[in-house]
Nucleic acid binder design. Structure first.
Lengths: 339, 339
DNA sequence: TTGAAAGCGCTAACAT
DNA sequence: ATGTTAGCGCTTTCAA
């Protein structure tokens, strides 16, 4: 019975052993540098055989034997949002550094896809799962039952069952809005994302609290999906609004790109007519016009922490690792000179 | 010997069989809907057992047995370039539709990383490999020796050994530049990417040939990496150039975003002072200011073709599947009204 | 220092 | 219709 149709008959460890005139165990010892020592001469012969035969260990067999695939699974909304593009690259990097490969899936913001991907990743026996859920209370029974370590990404509240990493959204939003207030803007709006169910939205809370503390009234709220397209639509509504805000806090870079586009289209100047501060400060935010002042999420550290929570865990934790955001000052808020 | 440390003892097919009071073969038959028929009553019992026990097939064992991991490997420069973000999402999609998962790796444009990832993916026994190489003549001996189907992406010349998919860069560039010529611009520059070794650059050829055909002299060439950052630097050089071009063809959306930024910073108007046409027409290009006129690469079709070449192959081919690009007209070339 | 062999979980050919 | 079992390629215990 052979299902394998690959032309060049796969060379296995047995072939190497035969060619080198040793047992398969010895081949294992040299490949894995243990657990037994091998005489230098023997090792050389094995290495040579591997070279000559072009032998490549079969990861599936190894995974079966060891119960570890050395793969991590990641579910993100999609990498067409610059923040997630950046985050997924950082996660891939962190995984690679530990010898793990990354199974990447995009949920497109759809619950059904998200669940399907989770199930799929679990049955592929990933050694760890990183989940950016669309939902507030994602369905995790399967994950928990599987016993596979998992981390919730982009999560700002501890979960009952799993560790999570995120930034303090409310705090970040507050800092962003305070910066706008410091500039002297008084009518400060909000572009809010659609986050399935979280009520109230944490960025909204931060925005509102900064306003309240400063004795300012809450500006208008423009809701849209977390995308350039969504931001664009929100921007059109901003431009057309009665009592148009003089400054707006935007919940993500992706949205801000769209807002900028709509504002330009309406002939409005940023920051002169409307100032903007956004969230994420991804690579993208440095290349818009004008460049975006934004709250930065430390994607690399978050990725590192998430991967570490999966792989270096002594004990299962349900800690919510919260990272600080910091304000990256550029032009959209009115800080830097024209050019 | 048990290496598995997962808390909940993994439930295997044997457990299901025992619980359902059948043999393991029957469990297989119901899970795989064949190759043998199973009595409805028996099937129900098995399904029930699976449900109750929370059984999930072990993909590693299956892969070992079948010689197929049902995974595809992808190497791209990185998804912080919107074109590759879009392409990788399309590939993930196409793979998923066929029940395949995607192992995603970023080479960051580095040859060494690229090779490392290729080797790694091969030893993970992916059923197919999609490679966007930095190199003109990528090192493919390992790939070929492995017998694993592979496709070269973003490739505009047939390769000696592998099938490839891409668009006709020269033709696309020519069409873009012809559009600029049609507008009446006469001093047309080029922002060119750094593509390891390809000499001459195909987009450059297309640009030059359109100019020649129109009896125009070749404008200046500004070379940069295929990134926003690179485009930004090129844009600064454009703004500062003596005999500044009145129009520029930019080799990618990523670069165009950077160029736009630099031009704005220099107080130059697009398209009034400098018109732009770029390449890719990724989602990003619709949200810049002004929106970019660009040559569109059909990422979805390319992804579908690439995955199909891997999975539906009757015979190994070395065909270069070339897709047409088409001009997406927006504002940066001067076509559409101000707003 | 090296080798023999069991067994990881699964599929499917071959019994029954 | 269902069961038995060999064997996929690997790691590692145990024996030599």
């Amino acid at each position: 019975m052979t299902v394998n149709t690959g032309q060049p008959a796969r060379v296995t460890r047995k072939d190497v052993a035969r060619y080198a005139g040793v047992s398969t165990a010895v081949v294992s010892y040299v490949i894995n540098a243990g657990p037994k020592k091998v005489a230098p001469g023997t090792e050389a012969k094995v290495l040579d055989a591997i070279q000559v035969l072009g032998y490549r260990p079969n990861a599936a067999a190894r995974a079966l034997k060891l119960g570890s695939t050395e793969m991590l699974g990641l579910v993100i909304p999609g990498n067409t949002n610059p923040f997630f593009a950046e985050l997924s690259e950082a996660i891939e990097q962190a995984a690679n550094e530990r010898g793990y490969a990354l199974l990447l899936t995009s949920s497109d913001g759809a619950t059904s896809k998200e669940r399907k991907h989770v199930r799929n990743l679990l049955s592929r026996q990933v050694d760890g799962l990183l989940l950016t859920s669309v939902e507030d209370e994602p369905y995790l029974d399967d994950v928990i039952a599987s016993g596979i370590p998992a981390v919730l990404l982009n999560r700002y509240q501890p979960s009952e069952h799993l560790p999570s990493v995120g930034v303090d959204l409310a705090e970040g939003a507050r800092a962003a809005v305070e910066h706008l207030i410091w500039h002297g803007y008084e009518n400060i709006g909000l572009v809010k994302g659609i986050s399935a169910s979280r009520i109230p939205d944490e960025r909204e809370e931060g925005w509102a609290s900064a306003l309240t503390k400063a004795g300012l009234r809450e500006g208008q709220i423009f809701t849209s999906t977390f995308s350039m397209e969504g931001g664009y639509r929100a921007g059109q509504r901003i431009a057309a609004a009665r009592d148009r805000p003089t400054a707006v806090f935007v919940s993500s870079d992706a949205q801000a790109v769209g807002v900028l586009r709509a504002l330009h289209e309406a002939g409005l100047q940023v920051p002169q007519d409307i100032a903007l501060v956004s969230f994420d400060a991804s690579f993208q935010s440095a290349f818009t016009w004008p460049a975006l002042t934004a709250m930065h999420q430390p994607t690399e550290q978050m990725a590192e922490a998430a991967v570490s929570a999966l792989l270096d865990r002594e004990t299962a934790s349900t800690e919510n690792m919260v990272f600080p955001t910091d304000l990256v000052v550029r032009r959209s808020c009115g800080c830097l000179p024209e050019s």
